[in-house]
Design a protein around this nucleic acid. Structure first.
Lengths: 204, 204
DNA sequence: CGGGTTTTGTGAAACTTTTCTCATTATAGT
DNA sequence: ACTATAATGAGAAAAGTTTCACAAAACCCG
């Protein structure tokens, strides 16, 4: 599971970019917290954990904050990502590509066992699965997105790990079994809706 | 933020369905934990919080567990959901519809300001935004999915709340501002990838 | 039918995360 | 230059979560 501290730092990064675009050069923990939906103390603690300091009375300088955050998240390097499963979700992600995948993260290739999908017009080139090794090595890919149906997800996962993938973003509604050194991040869209339904009913 | 306790219960529900399909009728906290990727103690604590009990030496009966979990998450009632923004992600979700949206959760309508999107062949009918009130009331919808670009997300959010929506699953990469009684669940796909990149680099 | 084994349920302990509190200090205004 | 103000940084407290440890109960086997 991704630590919330890390998720918040990424959120701050997003907010800071927005503030920068609006022309601000400095920011207070209060304003950043407000924008990111957390308390100012939380912002300062999150920063202090990573050794980020500001100035009493003058807050934090946005530009240097962004530089530090980009270093923490290695956003100063290029990260090539591949995608396995060109179904609806996979295709949607492929079409978005540099649109919503953040700075310096690039979807370089998609994979699907269905030859028909390999010709489909998407934002990225689509290959058969036997090209996995070649492309993972060629593009130095260490992160993959799994958007295949749940029945084949574990098999695809094993295959990817075997080919050298170290981090996986999994959209298939199962818990992937993987060695501890592999980072697995599961997103289950049904679960996210069901959780909302739960909280709505709690309020009544 | 959704409590992890709740996410795990939903995960257990998924695993139990699988075990049921495989023909099992009883299960131990150890097996369920193993499948869901958590410790057996955690499984028992999660259950005990919600008053779910099993039998010493005989574990838990899958069928009754599923009934209780379905009650907790109100999956015995129908939940109609709408979707605003028929871009790539929105269309992908619409096409999946009853496929991956869990039991008794239905995507009943999509909305988009672009008339061209209103004719597009997707899994659900697509309407202009001025039909929001009508359909929210007609289908008794209280949950909405936002898949519009970030610039319009807050405006759409306000609009939805104004029309009676109480729970929002937001895919736009901003933190939505909403009253405390509104349940907002943010999914930022870039962030999920970036978090993986972070952890991969931590290992080195 | 009774002893041994296995598994639950839970209270306590350990750990993690968040909030509180306040001394410290940079800044702006007088 | 001095004072009042406003903001950080960090230690302490509080709250929340997970793991530990073990008594109690149910089942199995002899």
């Amino acid at each position: 599971m991704i630590k919330s501290n890390i998720k918040r730092l990424l959120q701050y990064r997003l907010c800071l970019t927005k503030f920068k675009e609006l022309g601000y050069s400095r920011i207070f923990s209060y304003n950043l917290g407000n924008e990111a939906g957390v308390s100012p103390e939380q912002v300062r603690k999150d920063f202090s954990i990573h050794g980020i300091t500001g100035n009493k009375k003058a807050g934090y300088e946005i530009e240097s904050l962004l530089i530090i955050l980009n270093q923490i998240f290695r956003m100063d390097e290029i990260h090539n990502v591949i995608l396995v499963g060109m179904g609806h979700i996979g295709t949607a992600l492929a079409n978005y590509n540099n649109h919503f995948i953040g700075q310096n993260v690039y979807l370089v290739a998609g994979f699907d066992m269905d030859p028909a999908k390999q010709n489909k017009k998407t934002g990225i080139p689509v290959f058969p699965l036997d090209k996995l090794s070649e492309l993972i090595e060629g593009f130095q890919v260490s992160t993959a997105i799994i958007t295949v149906p749940p029945v084949s997800a574990q098999e695809v996962c094993n295959n990817l790990i075997d080919k050298g993938i170290k981090g996986i973003l999994n959209f298939a509604p199962i818990v992937l079994k993987a060695p501890k050194n592999i980072i697995v991040n599961n997103i289950n869209l049904s679960t996210e809706i069901e959780a909302i339904v739960y909280y709505l009913n709690q309020q009544k």
